[in-house]
Simulated assay, not measured.
Amino acid sequence: MRLENIVMQARDPQATGRFWSAALGLEDLSPGSPDDYEGRLRIDDDVWLDVCIEPVTEPPPPGWRLHLDLRGGAQQAEVVERLHGLGARHTDIGQVDVPWVVLADPDGNPFCVMEERAAYADTGPIAALPLDSADPARDAELYAAITGWVPVEGVGLVTLRHPSLRGPLLELCPEPEPKVRQNRAHLDVRPTPDGPDQRGLVDLALSLGASLASEDWAQEHPWTVMRDVSGNEFCVLADPED
């Protein structure tokens, strides 16, 4: 199994996709739907993540339980300036006095450009994926089991990373408030031939406290929509041969 997709929502996926493609140096791919955007962030030959953007009609709501932290480091100011040139803008999510810079993409989705941190060595342009959690340790157990990622020293209360120790960190962070709506960003995991199939991966997630999404929008897909212990959506994709 592997963590395959970071899925975001936007009112204009193509315009937002062009921003993220330029911001992250993505390889543009052919999405499953012409209304979507999909691009690949290649860390090395064996480590990659796809950024997928799907359409919605509403602007971003308050609260952002999963977002991207981009690597800035010693070049933080230069990275921020370049992102401004691509269409990002400063935004206030209540951050007050912090060493990172909070921006929003052209659709208004917040993200951060981080200061220098030793934990971000070899991450590539995405330093981390912070995810709000009501129980970071228990959610980390779930994500480790369904992605194959391993615990590492990091910035979040509990941090996971690809076993190659390359690519972004998945940081499980204490939630500021309980989840109240569908997340505007989520993760997708894919079965691989050396692990459980889709049904087995769903059963594994259920055994570790995940639940099946019951809403109408979550039904009738090749993937299975689930929620972690804290209510955050994630999807188990179809088996590779499907």
Rank of each mutant, 00 (worst) to 15 (best):
residue 25 G to S: 12
residue 176 P to L: 05
residue 23 A to H: 05
residue 119 A to P: 01
residue 48 W to M: 07
residue 55 P to H: 04
residue 166 R to T: 08
residue 90 H to A: 14
residue 84 H to V: 01
residue 174 P to C: 11
residue 78 E to Q: 14
residue 204 L to T: 14
residue 213 A to G: 12
residue 234 F to D: 02
residue 201 L to G: 00
residue 220 E to Y: 10
residue 218 A to I: 09
residue 231 G to H: 02
residue 215 E to W: 09
residue 71 R to C: 00
residue 125 P to M: 13
residue 115 E to M: 12
residue 201 L to F: 09
residue 63 G to T: 09
residue 90 H to R: 15
residue 233 E to H: 02
residue 145 A to V: 10
residue 90 H to M: 12
residue 16 T to M: 04
residue 10 A to R: 02
residue 144 A to Y: 03
residue 188 D to R: 06
residue 171 E to P: 00
residue 80 V to E: 00
residue 130 P to K: 07
residue 225 V to I: 13
residue 190 R to L: 13
residue 96 V to Y: 03
residue 94 G to N: 08
residue 105 D to T: 01
residue 81 E to H: 11
residue 220 E to Q: 15
residue 76 Q to V: 01
residue 131 L to F: 02
residue 199 R to C: 10
residue 35 D to T: 14
residue 164 S to E: 10
residue 158 V to M: 07
residue 233 E to N: 09
residue 105 D to C: 06
residue 158 V to N: 01
residue 51 V to Y: 05
residue 223 W to D: 01
residue 65 R to S: 06
residue 204 L to Y: 08
residue 228 D to S: 10
residue 234 F to P: 04
residue 214 S to M: 14
residue 57 T to G: 15
residue 51 V to G: 01
residue 132 D to R: 03
residue 17 G to R: 08
residue 230 S to E: 03
residue 165 L to N: 14
residue 128 A to C: 10
residue 30 S to D: 11
residue 174 P to L: 14
residue 133 S to E: 02
residue 179 K to Q: 12
residue 111 F to T: 03
residue 240 P to H: 09
residue 214 S to N: 13
residue 132 D to G: 00
residue 125 P to Q: 11
residue 43 I to C: 10
residue 114 M to D: 03
residue 14 Q to R: 14
residue 96 V to I: 07
residue 110 P to R: 00
